[in-house]
Amino acid sequence: MTCEDTTPPLMDRLQADLSPVGEEQHDERQSELVRQALLRLPAERREVLVLSRYEYKSYDEIARVLDCSVGAVKVRVHRAMKQLREIYLDMAGEVSA
């Protein structure tokens, strides 16, 4: 293989690296907004949400730690998600406005 042979694939690769990929960028922006929204959530709401969504703790485990009923945990996670959604939609509105 000569050096010249390597040129097209290399250029293709660079091109692929440089050119914006619409969907990916959109996903990234969305993730960034979700992350920001999560940070803006009051700490105690964020806590139950992170525990159930990212730490894979069961509602039962969370209830034991927070010393409340399983039903109350579900309501708390639900409230946290509602508020997160509101914050997210607000921020998405600001960004696109």
Partner: peptide, 20 residues
């Protein structure tokens, strides 16, 4: 529908970005 969408969008964060 809204809550399912929110739950799924939370899944789009990788661990590095989650405020543990």
């Amino acid at each position: 529908e809204a809550m399912t969408e929110t739950w799924n969008s939370l899944g789009s964060l990788d661990d590095e970005h989650v405020p543990h």
